[in-house]
Amino acid sequence: MSENPNNWPLWEVFIQSKRGLDHKHVGSLHAADAQMAIENARDVYTRRQEGNSIWVVPASAISASNHDDGGMLFDPADDKTYRHPTFYQMPEGAKYI
């Protein structure tokens, strides 16, 4: 099954819903070029005031970690609770810390 080279490539879409928030992955779509991808993303993913800013990335440019490596990649962080502020006991009465 050979793909028609004239098929519009796949883009992943990230939308920032409000100033100051992260761009969040919302889905994907097809477009011939980046400009069209942004416009399609606007028409497809922001029809209900969801959008403030849009990023599009060619899906082929994304490398993903393997979920089954999850243990190796992410579990080692589990016992480093000293990275979290709640790890520390502050003396009673101390303010603004």
Partner: peptide, 11 residues
């Protein structure tokens, strides 16, 4: 001509 374009035109 393409689903994305269908949506754009309707907008």
């Amino acid at each position: 001509p393409q689903l994305e374009e269908d949506i754009a035109l309707t907008n």
